[in-house]
Amino acid sequence: MKNKSIKDVLTSTEMINVYIIVALSMVIGSINSNFLSVATVITLSRAIMVTMIFALGEMLVIVSGGIDVSFPAVACAALFVPIKLMVDNGINNVWFAFGLAIIIGLVFGALNATLTAVVKLPPLIATLGVSSLINGGMLAFFGSKEISNLPKAVDAISQKFLFTYTAPTGATYSLTVLFLIPVILCIGVALMLKYTMLGRGIYAIGGDQNAARIAGFNVVRIKYFVYMFAGAITGLGAMCYCILCRTANPKNLMGSEMMVIAAIVVGGTRISGGHGKVIGTVLGVVLVGLIQNNLIMAGVPAYWQKFVVGLVIVLGTSITSLKAKKIAQSAKV
C-alpha cells in the first residue's frame, strides 16, 4: 500500500459529506429554483459563521479526548456582560467589547480545564455544571433583559461588508466583514493542528493520554491550552453573534451545543477523541447549516426541521461509529 488509495479518499468521511451536500443542494434546487444562487451562498455563510467558530473550539476539545457543553453559557456571558458594562458605563470601544469577551472565555476555559485536567472530573458532567453556574449566575447578577441599543462603535461593525451582491431581482445581499474571523481561525487552527507539536500533542492525548505522558507531553498544560483556546474563540464568536443580531440577548444561544457537537461528529470527528480535522468540521457545519436553514425551501414545514436535523445527526453518528467499529475489528497488517 503506497500513499492513500483512491478508494480510501473517495469513501472518507469528508467526501461523504461532500456527496450529501451536493445531493441535498440538487434536491432543494430542483424543488425551488431560487436555491441555487449566489444569494443562498451569502445567506448560508452568514448563518453558519458563528456555529463555525464555536465548532472549531469544540472540535479541539473533543479531539483532545474531552467534551465541552458549557460553551453556549460562556458565549452568553461573553456577549452580554461586556455590552451590559459598556451600556451602563457609557463605554464605546470595539476593542473593549471583543477583549472582554475573549477574557471571559479564557477564564471559564481555565475553570473547565482545572476541573477536567487537574481534579479529573468527567468532562461532560463538569462542563454541564459550569454551564449551569455561568448561566444562572449571569442572569441572577447581570439581569436577563435583552439589550437592543448596542454601543455605537460596536453596532457600526454590522454595517461593514466584504462585498455586496445585487440579485437580478434587485435585492442586495452583503457579506459581513466578520466572516473573515472564522476563515482566519479555520486556517490557523488547521495549520496549528497539522504543523506544530502542540497540535500533534492534542491528537496524542486524545489517542492515549498515558502514552502521551510517557512520551513527554505535558498533558495538563495541553488541556489547559485546549479549553482556554476554545473558551477564547467562543468569546470571539459570541461577540460576532451579538453584532450580527444587533442585540445582546443573554440566553438565545443556550441549547446550541447540540447542533455544534452534531456538526462536528457528522464531520468525522470521533467523540472518543484522537480523530478529527478542520476540513471535516467545516463540511459538517455546512451540511447541518444547509439542512437547518433551507429545509423550508425544500417544502419541509418549519416544525419538522428539528426532527429532520436529528435524523441526519443520528445517521451521521451511526456511520462514524460503525466505521470505527469496523476498523477495530478489521484484519491487522
Partner: peptide, 29 residues
C-alpha cells in the same frame, strides 16, 4: 512497555518521530 504506549490514532511515521521531536523541544512538526 508491555502496552507499547504508542498512539493508535497517529501514523507509523509520526509515532516513530514523535519522541525525537519532543526530546529536542521542537515546536514545529
Amino acid at each position: 512497555y508491555q502496552d507499547f504506549a504508542v498512539f493508535p490514532n497517529l501514523t507509523v511515521a509520526e509515532n516513530i518521530a514523535m519522541n525525537r521531536a519532543l526530546m529536542t523541544g521542537a515546536k514545529k512538526m
